[in-house]
Nucleic acid binder design. Structure first.
Lengths: 145, 145
DNA sequence: CTTATAATTGAAAATGATTTTCAATAAGAT
DNA sequence: ATCTTATTGAAAATCATTTTCAATTATAAG
């Protein structure tokens, strides 16, 4: 809403959406605002519930569609869960991995530079070309243990 | 089927199932046989199709239930996919991780001892107690690239 | 400031993997 | 051989996610 001063993360994301060719609509503003300011991973349904408090007419489908676009633009990242469902979290810059608190859902990012060399040795030993990797750690945060 | 000589992996698994308190039935024998002899990860549906060639009356539900028990007994492990669906693969002994060929589905296991120290340092920096981790690499195997 | 056009919305229905229900069957104990 | 209880498979139920579609709305064009 502010027209002066440094832009908020939410404003940056809205600009990115627009540059990506997407229109800025009321439901999108709500979803972007929530995701940009939340440091926990949220399920589409949890996000929907939060969004409805601001925009009661919001549809769950719009939540899914907006998350898809934000992921495509690299603003958020998917969090995989054991049951196969997904949550979404503010994306980090560069290549980072996730550490999730099993109790409160808090998400901390750490970088995996130290693993790059290790992956290289796995590639060498197996003859594979490694294209992608997927690492998530689960545990309890300081407050929860 | 053999009553003498060294037991096959399939026989060992059947014994494990029985020791686990489960009955040995025709459909279970078929499912165990396939999983014990396959080095690719299989989806429940793919396993179902393979199983029906041997046991046409086999039900998909039985496939799911048997996979669940085999996983519980540590005979097989889940493979997570980006779409949230699961495949299952012969489990390795000890702690091992997966490297999957994106083209042919071939699965290679490697151990992650070298990462234990790294995870320890992440724990120290973040204040988390790390309870579990999840690592999968994706790429192309020698034959497929 | 209209108007035109194509993107976006949300409700409802569809999908697809997985799970549950339930009556019939079969394994393993007695 | 019989009994008890686990197991089976078909059908129905679930649940996250996706698609359909008519109504709405952001933005470009005039």
């Amino acid at each position: 809403m502010s027209t002066t001063g440094s832009p908020t993360l939410s404003d940056e994301w809205l600009a990115t959406l627009q540059e990506g060719g997407y229109r800025l609509t009321a439901p999108r503003r709500v979803i972007v605002e929530i995701m940009a300011s939340c440091e926990r991973a949220l399920s589409p349904l949890a996000l929907f519930d939060l969004g409805r408090k601001i925009q009661p007419r919001l549809g769950l489908v719009t939540v899914y569609r907006t998350l898809e676009k934000m992921e495509e633009l690299g603003l958020i990242q998917r969090v995989h869960q054991a049951d196969g469902c997904h949550m979404y979290l503010r994306a980090a810059r560069g290549h980072q991995h996730l550490l999730l608190c099993e109790n409160c859902g808090k998400a901390v990012l750490f970088d995996g530079d130290e693993m790059t060399a290790f992956f290289g040795s796995v590639a060498r030993k197996t003859g594979f070309t490694i294209k992608d990797h997927w690492l998530q750690l689960f545990g309890l945060c300081e407050a929860c243990k």
